[in-house]
Each structure stands twice: as C-alpha cells, then as structure tokens.
Design a protein around this nucleic acid. Structure first.
Lengths: 104, 104
DNA sequence: CCGATATTCCTAGAAATATCGGAAGATGGA
DNA sequence: TCCATCTTCCGATATTTCTAGGAATATCGG
C-alpha cells in the first residue's frame, strides 16, 4: 500500500458521517445492511448517504451486493486491516525497524 | 475516544501532505526534526508546512518542543496507538464483542 | 406492460481546505 | 542594541467537499 492509498482510506474514514456509516456496517456484521436500513439508523438525506457510500465503495472499504431490489452494504474488513497494518508497520514502525524506507 | 475524535485524527492524517509529514517525523524518531529540516525533506512552501503542522499539533498527533532558536517537532506515538486501538477495538470489533455499543 | 419500491445520478450552493508569497514575531549571538 | 535565523501569521485564490432535493434508473410482483 502506498502513502496515497493510505491517505485516501484515512480521508474516507475521516468524515464523521462516513465513520458512522462504516462503524454501523461493521457492527451489523454478517448480514450487512441495505441503504435504507442504514438511513433509518443514521438519519439524513438518502442522496447524501449514497454519496458517502460511493466514496467508501470506490476506495474499497465497503462492498455492495445486490439482493433482489435492495443493495446490501457490507464492511470490508481486509481493507481496514491493511490500513491498520500500514499505520503500525510501514508508517509508525520504530525507527530501528524503519531503516529500509527513506530514512536516509 | 469518541467517534468525532477518531474522525478528526483520521482526517488530519488523510491528507497526503500531512501523512508525509507525520511519517517523516515518525521515522526521524528520537531526535525529531525542525520545521526547516522537514521542509528540506518534503519541499513546498514553509507557510503551507506550518499550516499542516498546526493541524497535526492541535489534534495532538505531533508535539513541538523549543530547542534554542528552533522548534523541534516530534510524532506523538501514543495518539496514533490510541487511534489504532479505536479502529480495531471499538469500531471494528467483531460483532460478537460489540454488543455493548449501539447494536440495539 | 404497469405500478411500486429501492437506489443512484444530476445539479447546485455554502463551507472548508490547500496552497502560496510576504510580513511579523520570537530567540540567540555579537 | 542590532542582526541573523527560524517559525508563524495574514491575506488571497482555486479547488474540493458536504449537504440536499428532485429526476432517472433498476428490479420485482401482478
């Protein structure tokens, strides 16, 4: 993962509304949630929710799956783990371990 | 840590320039870096760098310490660990463990 | 095909952000 | 005190983002 990728994920999660969406999705777990179910829990306009969802989907933090008329949204745990890994290993590694980078 | 706090940290780190600043600071480790040393490594205008630094400092991700004429900037590891903890425990906990929240 | 429901797309305005050049403030040395 | 150095603050502009209402699209049941 590049620095720009990490920044994009961070930025996507950096908006309170989107972080709420993501957290709600994570907690819903297994079955995921439809867009309207999400709105029932979070409030706000549907178009706004969709807009944020698109951002999360584009980046890969959220996955959508069609189920009849409704689209089920699910959190993509792998992406989050990748991000956390980047933060803890590549970026925030102890300086002793980070010498392979640009520490020059 | 509240959701808004986490979002604020995430947003601060979500800008590529700021993530670079933070990463450079982390890798500098021990001694930290002065603002001008930071600019030598990252380029760009000094005022822009200062602006981003202020954001990072305000949130607590970066700490400044006076050393004679120069101000040394250091990464605040604790804040980052706190953020990672939030992401992995409070936010991205498995649904089985997250029932104390708003899972209703 | 038609109607109903679910979701996204288009459009738009207000607000925030990123970036910069140059001036101003702070600190230390002669 | 005066100068040199380091850093932040001021003012400005272009870009992006957030929010939302309403139209358009997709899918299903009859």
């Amino acid at each position: 993962m590049t620095l720009d990728d990490a920044a994009a994920r961070l930025e996507a999660l950096g908006n309170p509304t989107r972080l709420s969406i993501y957290r709600t999705l994570v907690r819903a777990g297994e079955g995921g949630l439809s867009v309207s179910a999400l709105r029932e829990r979070l409030g706000g306009a549907l178009s706004t929710l969709s807009h944020h969802l698109q951002k999360l989907i584009l980046i890969g933090l959220v996955i959508q799956e069609r189920q009849g008329t409704t689209l089920i949204c699910r959190a993509n745990y792998d992406q989050m783990h990748g991000l956390v890994d980047y933060l803890t290993k590549e970026c925030c590694a102890d300086e002793t371990d980070a010498r392979q980078g640009d520490a020059a």
